[in-house]
C-alpha cells in the first residue's frame, strides 16, 4: 500500500520509493528509504498535508508526495490484543538490543503469541514465555 493511505497512529515500513528526480531525492535525503519505519502522526485540519515521524523527527508531506512511497503496514507489539499470533517484522534498535531480543526468540520472521496485553506484556515465543515492558514493546514491530 501507499504511505498516503495510512491513518494517524498507524505504523509502516518503507518497501520502495517510486518516482524520479526531485521528489525521489528529497524523500531519500529526509531518511525515507527502504527499511525505514514511519509513524503517521496527524493530518492537517484540511486533510492535507500529513505529519509523519521518521527516525525520531517530524516532517510533513503532501498526500501527493506520500503516494510515491510504497509501504507495508506494521503494528507495534504494544498494541497487539491478547490471544493473537503475529509475525515479527522488525526489531528497532542497536546491535545489543537486537541480540537480546533474539535470545528471547524475538527476531524478524519469528512468530510469537501475545498472552497478556500491556503492561508488562506476556508473550510466548519459540524459546518460551517472556515478560516485556512497554518501552521494549514499542520497538518491536509485527504484522
Amino acid at each position: 500500500m501507499r504511505l498516503s493511505e495510512l491513518k494517524p497512529g498507524e505504523y509502516a515500513i518503507v518497501r520502495d520509493l517510486l518516482g524520479k528526480g526531485p521528489i525521489h531525492q528529497r524523500l531519500l535525503s529526509m531518511g525515507i528509504l527502504p527499511g525505514a519505519v514511519i509513524r503517521v502522526v496527524r493530518t492537517s485540519p484540511f486533510g492535507d498535508p500529513v505529519e509523519y515521524e521518521i527516525r525520531g523527527f517530524f516532517i510533513s508531506l503532501r498526500k501527493n508526495e506520500a503516494s510515491y512511497v510504497e509501504v507495508d503496514k506494521i503494528i507495534p507489539l504494544v498494541s497487539v490484543p491478547p490471544g493473537s499470533r503475529v509475525r515479527v517484522v522488525l526489531v528497532d534498535g542497536g546491535v545489543g538490543f537486537m541480540r537480546n531480543m533474539d535470545s528471547m526468540g524475538i527476531s524478524p520472521g519469528q512468530e510469537i503469541t501475545v498472552l497478556r496485553g500491556c503492561c508488562p506484556m506476556l508473550v510466548e515465543t519459540a524459546r518460551g514465555k517472556f515478560s516485556i515492558g512497554r518501552g521494549i514493546a514499542h520497538r518491536i514491530f509485527v504484522r
Binding site: 526531485p22 528529497r26 517530524f58 510533513s60
Partner: peptide, 11 residues
C-alpha cells in the same frame, strides 16, 4: 516552475 516537493520539517 518545476514542482518542488514540499517536505517540511516540524522542529
Amino acid at each position: 516552475g518545476e514542482s518542488q516537493p514540499f517536505v517540511l520539517e516540524l522542529p
